[in-house]
């Protein structure tokens, strides 16, 4: 899902770095051999420029997704309906910020500064996961996000713990450890609603109606339309295809919806005995494209919030830098 936009044209800054020759056959061969042996590639190791660029884009998109992802759920912190839910939600959103940090940190090992990545996010050149361009309209949306969106994310993230690039793999291990409560708290919210009053059940069903399709679109275009997947799989950055992960998610989630007593908004959804999978109706990829291109329900609001936070905070960051310059950054301890 963090590779959703990898097929689109690259931003100019991520073109070849100076000093990187167009392929050294011996080095490339040794690199491929290391990948074959499932060895981890670390920051100072030689790597093909295309490998480095793919990772920078994927890791930074993943980081941006975490940061932007703080907004739809952060939207409900002040309105959480109990103090316990409020505390859990703050902790979850805080975790997401933390995950963004681990990922920016991993991306920086590849030669791109966080300031540069943020600039690309804020001016629209860099992408983030499509799912966060949908609004959270009710409290049930918070549950749906935890259950479906974090569920999809976990499915995607666990294989990346074994990806070939060391810092990214280690960041993912850390993230996966922390992620376990995110999906559980979302499902717990849905369960409380599903077992509640008629109005609460309706709220839960409405949220599922709005979040189901965007969640399965999170896994990215179908394998047939995804051109970079093959190379990413060869480099062991990607371990499963989009369709494989999507199918796994659907198979796991449909029974959960049944347990909640909620109906998945897909009249064509059926169990296929032959393949032992749930098959869905057709996915509306035109919506996915529109959202990726910036025309989703709240792409503009998300970007505006991030831009404002960055701009409004500039004087703060400058003050801290000025203070450190005046007093030596080791003082102030």
């Amino acid at each position: 899902m963090y590779t959703q936009a990898l097929d689109s044209p690259q931003p100019p800054d991520l073109e070849r770095r100076p000093g990187s020759p167009g392929g050294e056959p011996a080095l490339e061969r040794r690199f491929e051999e290391r990948i074959e042996r499932d060895e981890k590639i670390e920051p100072k190791d030689w790597m093909p420029e295309a490998y480095r660029q793919t990772l920078v884009r994927q890791i930074s998109q993943h980081a941006h997704s975490e940061i932007v992802g703080m907004l739809p759920e952060g939207n409900w912190i002040t309105r959480a309906p109990s103090l316990r839910r409020k505390a859990v939600l703050i902790a979850k959103v805080q975790d997401e910020g933390g995950h963004g940090m681990y990922l920016y940190s991993a991306a920086e090992t590849l030669g791109v500064a966080r300031a540069e990545m943020l600039e690309q996010l804020l001016d629209g050149r860099a992408k983030y996961s499509s799912i966060f361009n949908y609004p959270t309209l009710t409290w049930a949306d918070v549950g749906a996000i935890g259950w479906l969106v974090d569920g999809a994310a976990i499915m995607n993230q666990i294989p990346i713990c074994r990806c070939s690039y060391g810092p990214y793999a280690r960041a993912m291990v850390r993230i996966c450890k922390e992620e376990s409560f995110h999906q559980r708290q979302g499902f717990e919210i849905m369960l409380a609603l599903a077992r509640g009053t008629q109005e609460q059940r309706a709220m839960a069903q409405d949220a599922l109606n709005r979040w189901w399709w965007p969640s399965i679109m999170m896994f990215g275009p179908s394998d047939a339309s995804s051109t970079h997947t093959a190379q990413s799989m060869r480099w062991r950055i990607k371990r499963f295809t989009n369709d494989e992960l999507r199918q796994k998610f659907i198979d796991v989630t449909v029974p959960q919806a049944e347990f909640l007593g909620l109906t998945i908004p897909d009249a064509a959804l059926r169990w296929d005995e032959a393949s032992q999978h749930y098959l869905t109706g057709p996915i509306d990829w035109s919506e996915f494209k529109a959202v990726l291109q910036g025309n989703g329900p709240c792409n503009q609001e998300r970007m505006q919030a991030r831009r404002e936070a960055h701009e409004d905070g500039r004087w703060v960051r400058e003050a801290a830098t000025a203070y450190a310059a005046k007093h030596g950054s080791r003082r102030h301890e």
Binding site: I67, M70, L71, G74, I77, T78, K86, A87, I90, A91, V93, Q94, G97, G98, G100, M101, Y104, A305, E308, A309, H310, D312, G313, R314, V316, R317
Partner: peptide, 21 residues
Amino acid sequence: GEWVGHAPALEEDLALANIAL
């Protein structure tokens, strides 16, 4: 809690969330 997602730097989002908690 109103600050989360809007702080001057990502690190400060976490710091303010920590205090809020």
